[in-house]
Simulated assay, not measured.
Amino acid sequence: MTYSALDLSADSSDSAARAQDARPSTRGCLALAVETFARQTVPDEARLAEVRESAAQWAREGVPLGAILRAYHEGVRIAFGVVTARAKAADIDELLLATDLMLELLEAITAAVSDAYVDEQHLVAREHQTATQTLASALLSGRASSTLARQTGIPIAESYQVVALAIPDHRDESPPRLDAHAAARRKLRRLQSALATVFESHALALLSTKGGTLLIPAGGPALTSEVLDALAGAAEVPLTATLVLSDTDEVPDAADQAHELLELVRVGGRAPGLYQMTDLAVEYQLTRGGPATRRLATILEPLEAHQELFDTMRAYLGNDMNRQLTARQLYVHPNTVDYRLRRIAQLTAIDLATSAGISQAAIALLARDLDRHIPHRP
């Protein structure tokens, strides 16, 4: 059996018919296979340029990578079948050579197609990300228009879920690791990939490795506590988000409110999760200012010189008024906790042994924290 004796285009009517019916990628691969078996060498990079260009075009058109590779592999399989059809027992050496050539050609084609496809997908993703960031910035500044929507190729919804998002550090970002910045970027890429999947690439995101703003169009997939948990799993960090529903023309104000709520969550020491205004109504009202709020913030002033009393109050409230847990947390005897609670009552008239005193203490402590960390609005 000699390669020169093989006619890969005419003698075998069955092979010719199969090639005729094959997709363009299969026919192109047949040509490469003919060249490979004839020259007994794999085509060079310049010869594979057409393969890479076709793969990039198919990536832009959304053709699955698996379908492209299967088409090319089909071309190699057809050519190899023609080569081996006339083989005899004495042709074992040439069959082994043909097998090696086939495997080398498959490797070269697979690498060229995959690299070009992935590069094009990355380019498309960057273009889409730039478009979404441009539209998100316009919406957040109140400058969105139908012209901009046409330029970006992204329609403007009638209303949005406006989300303020906090992203904590991943464990790989902690010192003394040298790749903290790379770990932060990987965390963000994982989250962005999950966002694209969950919200079908419709969510508009302005995010850094620490957090940012999401605009999720109404009418499609919505952000829920379960969805946020799934996003946190993908990012491998617990996420905290605050959500405000808004008409499109009110997005700037809604974003300000969402980020204000997110700061209330932080100051209040709340657990990660999804919060809305109904979850933070008391805290939000306290930041509005007024005589009542200022009075609440001053109730605890007599404790300023006694940090241990503040620590005891926080721990006692945080442990659901459990003396034993509070004592263990503070590394003191339960009797010491009792003594400190009595001192708090003497200095502030807040009796933490009563439900009224507990409520008053919790609100006063919250008002004090908010007064110190968040400016009041008139």
Rank of each mutant, 00 (worst) to 15 (best):
S246I: 02
V282G: 08
A232S: 15
E236H: 11
L239D: 02
D279N: 13
L245A: 15
R266D: 00
P272Q: 09
L280N: 02
G290E: 06
V267M: 01
D249A: 15
A232Q: 04
L245D: 13
L274G: 07
H259V: 04
A281G: 07
L228I: 11
G233L: 08
G289M: 04
V227H: 03
A230F: 09
T287W: 04
L261V: 04
R266F: 05
L261Q: 06
Q257W: 01
A292Y: 09
V265F: 10
T248G: 02
Y275M: 09
T242A: 09
P252W: 00
G289W: 02
Q276C: 13
Q276K: 13
A297P: 07
T242G: 01
Q257H: 11
A297G: 08
A271W: 13
V282C: 10
V227W: 03
T287Q: 04
M277E: 13
Q257D: 06
P252Q: 02
G290I: 11
A258M: 08
A235F: 08
V265Y: 06
G233R: 13
R288E: 12
R266N: 02
A255Q: 08
V267N: 01
R294F: 11
D229N: 14
L262T: 01
Y275E: 07
E263H: 15
L261G: 01
V237Y: 07
A258G: 05
L228P: 05
P238D: 11
L280E: 01
V265D: 07
G269M: 07
E260M: 11
E263F: 02
Y284D: 12
E283A: 15
L262E: 10
L231S: 00
A254T: 03
A271Q: 15
A241T: 10
P272R: 07
R266T: 10
M277T: 14
D253Y: 10
D256R: 15
L261N: 00
D253A: 15
M277W: 10
D256G: 10
V251I: 02
A241S: 06
D256T: 14
R294P: 00
R270N: 02
M277K: 12
V265K: 05
R270E: 07
D253P: 02
L280Y: 04
D247K: 14
T242W: 03
G268H: 06
L228K: 04
R295A: 15
A281F: 10
D247S: 15
D253N: 13
A292C: 06
T293G: 03
Q285W: 12
R266L: 02
A258H: 04
S246G: 05
R266I: 03
T242E: 00
A292T: 13
E283K: 06
R295I: 07
V244R: 04
A281E: 12
